[in-house]
Design a protein around this nucleic acid. Structure first.
Lengths: 161, 161
DNA sequence: CCAGTTACGTTGGCCGGTCCAACATTGGTT
DNA sequence: AACCAATGTTGGACCGGCCAACGTAACTGG
């Protein structure tokens, strides 16, 4: 009763880049489902986490402190404002800036999300022992750090014109 | 000379699901760039690899043997046909089926892609030792296998109606 | 003081990847 | 014959990531 051909080619299964992408599927599914229980998306959490860590910050600061593009920041902040989790106020000392501040409700929500996401991580790494989980995090961190800034940042300023 | 705030919130940096997604960025960038040198995309390689491993197969077989949806298979096969890397012929014993066969040129191309991708994997895992690379592949494989079939397959057949 | 340059927020859009619904054709079942 | 299942195909939705352009505002050098 073979379920023939249900698994990917061996060439792919041995390829780290492929494994990473395959692991990202359940990861994103679990995280998305977890956050959906609180009516949130991934970037909402990123934003709340950044605010909790950085304190009040401009949208440009938040864009730099997360992987969220400035273009997408507008809508993201709007959505958090609508739910009363952050406040957007104009910076009086620099009228270009919008200072975004997390509210007490935002902090409460953040703690809820922490709990939900912790659960999701547990399910994601279910087959691994505590020691193995540490190893995985360590190895991935090395890879991520090694490639940091190698493709995320703004395009090299073209000097033409 | 701190480059202040250039790194993501600690909450995220400690989260396996986030690390996996961040690692997927350079992974996809390197692989995409590598394949671009041969005028190919990722699913082209998946397809050629599956064909090389499965032998001649119908598009439905290929869809099941890869992560490529049947809807997207049509265009993918078309593109490979245009480049003479595969052939699409109607199965005489089942006139619904298109049998896709890899050509000698396809096999040659596949070997080229293997080489390009091997290089990309090396760059991706540059900071890791040989031992660490094995560990990473092993850990990711455990995670991927554990979640196999947990969200990819066709939607559960709704029994309503 | 003024001209040029830089930063910020915002709008709009493109692209790639994933997925689903519907359909006509064909084959299998009973 | 009547029904059900599988195949290939078209069309489109959705999401995440990214970029271009623009108006406003601040800064800098002459």
């Amino acid at each position: 009763m073979e379920i023939a051909g249900r698994s990917a080619p061996a060439r792919l299964r041995a390829m780290p880049s492929w494994l990473i992408n395959q692991a990202a599927l359940p990861a994103n599914r679990l995280v998305t489902e977890g956050l959906a229980g609180a009516g949130m998306r991934r970037y909402h959490f990123s934003l709340l986490a950044a605010l909790d860590e950085m304190g009040p910050a401009s949208q440009a600061d938040l864009s730099r402190g997360t992987t969220i593009d400035g273009s997408d920041m507008v809508a993201a902040v709007n959505e958090l404002v609508e739910q009363g989790l952050v406040e957007r106020t104009q910076d009086p000392t620099d009228r270009r800036r919008n200072v975004v501040t997390i509210t007490p409700a935002g902090r409460r929500q953040l703690r809820t999300l922490d709990r939900l996401l912790g659960k999701a991580q547990g399910e994601l790494l279910a087959p691994l022992s505590g020691e193995e989980r540490k190893q995985l995090v360590d190895l991935l961190t090395q890879v991520v750090d090694h490639h940091a800034g190698t493709g995320a940042g703004p395009r090299a300023r073209s000097s033409s014109r």
